[in-house]
Simulated scan of single mutants.
Amino acid sequence: MRTSKLTTLAIGLMLSTGAAAQHHDHSSMPMQMPMPAKPAPAPKAAQPAKPAPKPATKPKQKPAPKPPAEKPVDHSTMDHSQMQMDHSTMDHSQMQMGDAMSAPGELRTPIPALTDADREAARPPEHAHPVHDNTVHSKVLFNRLEAFDADHGNGLAWEGQAWIGTDTDKLWLRSEGERVDDRTEAADLEVMHGRPIARWWDVVGGVRHDFKPGPSQDWAAIGVVGFAPYKFEVEATAYIGASGRTAARIEAEYELLLTNRLILQPLVEANFNGKDDERRGVGSGLSTMEAGLRLRYEVHRKFAPYIGVVHERAFGDTADFRRALGEDKSDTRIVAGVRVWF
């Protein structure tokens, strides 16, 4: 019986020693990355499952120390006298300078030498101006085509011009006249040839035929047409007739744009005669002057109705001839008309 107790005690000590050997201190083991575990076989029903060991905690890492900051270099303490560069040993043949570092006086893009062919190509043609166009153009303009109510009756008046030709040669037609109570009071027609003499000026020359007033007569005419400074459109013409008669007409107008379509047009016309002509009721010197102010609205650039006021006055012997016929020497009238061109 004593032997069996000793045997039992020995077996118990052996079992307790083996169990203690299986339990290790996992806190002292280094951490390893777990590998993907294969599925464990199902535990036997006879043995209870062992509790899973607790994961080891990762030890805290101390932050890495910052590198020491570099001290700024004090260039004032540097001894530049000891720094020397020997340019004589440098191989300048391998150094290529760009266009921006070219030698003084050297052109970036060389200009080819001027040849006789280049000089010949730069000369203008002998019989044509390189700027002008030889295409034939034309224009018809009725600057005034209007009706009016005057003291001595209702009337119609016109003033127009037309030309056809090239930039250097044009054939001009100009006409001006007036009818009162279905009777022609004044009418003339001019046929002229024009050529440019300056950038804004043409010289014209030809003939003029007067239908009224009085008997018809013919004149030789020469004048200029163009734009004076500040864009005043000017027509100045001198006339020479039979028996030493002379005359002149000067007309100036200006277009003041109130808007892109509403335009105010002042116009002044003066007529001069070399000597009296009682049959036509004109005297020497300044015979008549007309000043008008017309306001037009351009429905289209080629079509513009207008209204205006016109004052006409006779001077000198012309005024005397009118008073002898029972007419006033001055007249003011309201006009309404249209300005067209094509």
Rank of each mutant, 00 (worst) to 15 (best):
L107N: 14
L107W: 14
T109F: 15
T109P: 06
I111Q: 15
I111D: 15
A113K: 13
L114K: 15
L114R: 14
T115L: 07
A117W: 09
D118K: 05
D118S: 07
E120C: 02
E120F: 11
E120V: 10
A121D: 01
A121E: 08
A122G: 08
A122R: 08
R123W: 03
P124S: 02
P124W: 03
P124A: 01
P125M: 11
E126F: 14
A128L: 13
H129W: 01
H129D: 05
P130Y: 05
P130K: 07
P130V: 06
V131K: 13
D133V: 09
D133M: 10
D133Q: 08
N134C: 10
T135F: 01
V136E: 04
V136S: 02
V136K: 00
V136N: 02
H137D: 10
S138V: 10
S138Y: 13
K139S: 12
V140D: 07
V140F: 13
V140E: 03
F142P: 01
F142T: 00
R144P: 11
L145E: 12
L145W: 11
L145Q: 07
E146P: 04
E146N: 00
E146I: 00
A147T: 08
F148L: 04
F148E: 04
D149F: 15
A150N: 00
D151V: 14
N154V: 13
N154S: 14
N154T: 13
G155N: 05
L156T: 13
L156V: 15
A157Q: 07
A157P: 01
A157V: 10
A157F: 01
A157T: 09
E159G: 15
G160I: 08
Q161V: 12
Q161R: 10
Q161P: 03
Q161T: 11
Q161S: 14
A162C: 05
W163C: 01
G165H: 01
G165K: 02
